[in-house]
Structures are given as C-alpha cells and as structure tokens.
C-alpha cells in the first residue's frame, strides 16, 4: 500500500447562482500515491477544473461553495485550514499549471519577478538576489535562456509562456502538481514539447501530478492512473492500461470511439450522441443514461455507485450487476 499524497473524499461543489444551483462536482473520491500521475479525463463542463480549484481551496466564492467532503494533502485537510496557513500551502506543497498561458501571467510584471515572487513567498529567509537567482535557474530548467528573465509576458510565445507557468509552479518544489489542461491552448508541436518537459520535471522534482485533460492521447502519454469524469461524477477509475485496454464504462467507450483513427483515414467519426446534461438539471438516474447506447430501464432509477471490478478498476455502471455484460469494444 503506497502512501497517498492527495486524497479527495466525497467532494461536493455547487455554484449557487441567481438562476439556480449548478451541480458541478457531486461526491467524487480520488487518491494519488507517491510518484504517480493521475489523469482526470472528461468533456468540458464535467467539473474537472472545479475539482482542481477545490484542492487549492480556490473555488471562486461567491458563487462557488464547497458543500462537503475532505481534501487531504499529505494528511492535512485543505478545506479546514485557516487563510494564513492555506497561503503557506498554496504554491509550496501544491502548485497549479493553468489552462491558458496567454492570460495566466501578470502582463505588467517581468517573468523573472513572477517566478521569484513564488520563491519569495515561501522562503522568507531568501534575499531578493537569491530569489532572482532561483528564478533564473527555473527558467533554465524549463528550457528558456535566463537572459529573458527581464522580459514581459507579451514578449514570449504561447509555448514559452506555458514554460514560465510551469517554472512558477515548480519553483518551490511542490509535493503535488495540478496541471489543468496544460497543453490545450498550444500548437500540437509545442504540446509535445511541453508534455515531455512536464514528464521530465516530474521525475526530477519527484512530485506527483494530477493531470486534467480531455485529450486521451495526452493521458496515454503521461498518466499511470486515469479517472473519467462525467457531469460531476467519476464514472470509471483505474490504471491507464486497464482503462485503455479493458474499458468498462459506456462513456469511456464513447470517448475512444470519437477519436479519429489515423490508420483508417476517411472512416467516419463516431461521436457520442446528444449533449452533456445541464448541470443545473441533472437527470435523476445515471447521469449518462440519456446518451448511453446500452441504457436499460433501471438505469433511470439512481446514480450507480463506483464499484470495484477487480484489480482496482472501478466503474459506476449497473449493467455490470449481470456478469455477462460486455461493451462492444471489448467483445
């Protein structure tokens, strides 16, 4: 049994807006062990970013409210920390890489200052020169010449900005790195570079990573474990190998089917029919039931629990109550 760096237990997050309550995250549980990378996969609006922000206790409030649950980072509950201690943990024990590098950096501060700030906030004993020196070292580590420390974000390309965001995140050597769609806003060629860099730095800094993405290719490339999220629920969870090769949940199957196949070009894509439910009005039964090709009457009775299907491969689907159920992909 490996020690868990991050444990999320029954997290529920709502956005209470004037128009109604948005059920963004509805009781999810996750854990990441030492040295692991967990991929959190799902469509836009599935609640991935809300989950990530909850870990830092940064869900914008109002309107976001963390209703219940526990988030243990190295056995400290992030949700009950007072503001001051929370500031000490943010950036130092857990850091985050944001989706859009074009807007994640402060436009009126040099990139060197922005990395140095991260160091300065958590090393009160460092002089200003020490912080700048550390910032330059971080720049070199993410593959940017340290002479560019005095540059402003507008002088850098998107890929370089994302490298700076990574440098900020890793500057204090965090135990947990959350990467929220780190490559979505980048060109494909730059995506590969940034992913390789993140993989390499994760090894060097000996940190664990929560990688949020909708890109299954990225997951296959980087992750050890995968959790598939749909409408605020985790519907499947297991090792990357199992989820890719012995897919259990119909939604995960749908995701794989909607990938273009390079070897059989011209073949028609098979998208998942319909739309993700409005998070203000979730269906009463299984949240995926309205789009599920295997749907049965009993699916509409309640959200199925996440059950172990052997070898720590979990799935939330009542079809597996009958032993001979198989997805088309697996038969």
């Amino acid at each position: 049994m490996t020690e868990n760096i991050l444990e999320i237990k029954d997290l529920v997050v709502h956005y209470e807006t004037d128009d109604g309550v948005v059920y963004a995250v509805n009781g999810i549980s996750l854990a990441i062990g030492k040295g692991q990378t967990l991929g959190l996969v799902g469509e836009t609006g599935a609640g991935k970013t809300t989950t990530a922000l909850s870990i830092l206790n940064l869900v914008p409030n109002p309107p976001g409210v963390i209703k219940s649950g526990e988030i243990l980072l190295d056995n400290i509950n992030m949700l009950s920390l007072p503001a001051r201690e929370l500031q000490n943990v943010r950036g130092k024990d857990v850091a985050m890489i944001f989706q859009d590098p074009m807007t994640a950096l402060n436009p009126v501060m040099t990139i060197g200052e922005q990395i140095a700030e991260s160091v300065m906030l958590h090393h009160k004993d460092f002089s200003k020169e020490d912080c700048i020196e550390r910032a330059k070292e971080m720049l070199r580590q993410v593959g940017i010449d340290d002479s560019r420390a005095a540059d402003y974000p507008h002088q850098l390309s998107g890929g370089m900005r994302q490298r700076v965001v990574i440098a900020i995140a890793l500057a204090c050597n965090p135990k947990l790195l959350i990467a929220d769609e780190p490559t979505t806003a980048l060109d494909v060629t730059i995506q590969a570079q940034v992913l390789a860099l993140m993989k390499q730095l994760k090894q060097e800094f000996n940190t664990v990573m929560l990688l949020i993405t909708h890109d299954l290719g990225v997951v296959a490339e980087v992750c050890d474990e995968v959790a598939v999220m749909y409408a605020g629920h985790i519907v499947e969870k297991g090792s990357a190998y199992d989820v890719f090769n012995h897919t259990l949940h119909p939604y995960t199957e749908g995701l794989f089917n909607s990938l273009p196949n390079l070897r059989e070009r011209g073949e028609e894509l098979v998208p998942i029919k319909g739309m993700m439910p409005d998070p203000m009005q979730l269906p009463t039964g299984c949240v995926f039931a309205p789009r599920c090709p295997y749907v049965m009457d009993k699916c509409r009775l309640g959200q199925p629990e996440l059950k172990d299907h052997g070898q720590s491969h979990f799935v939330a689907c009542i079809a597996y109550d009958s032993e001979d159920f198989k997805l088309r992909r697996n038969s």
């Binding site: 950036g91 944001f98 994640a104 436009p107 991260s118 900020i168």
Partner: peptide
C-alpha cells in the same frame, strides 16, 4: 483575470 488566480495559487496573501 486569470493572473489573479495564478497569484493566489502561488500563495500570495489576498
């Protein structure tokens, strides 16, 4: 703006 969130995530005080 996003960079305000980045600053908070760094551990900067409000």
């Amino acid at each position: 703006q996003d960079y305000m969130r980045t600053a908070r995530a760094k551990g900067a005080s409000e």
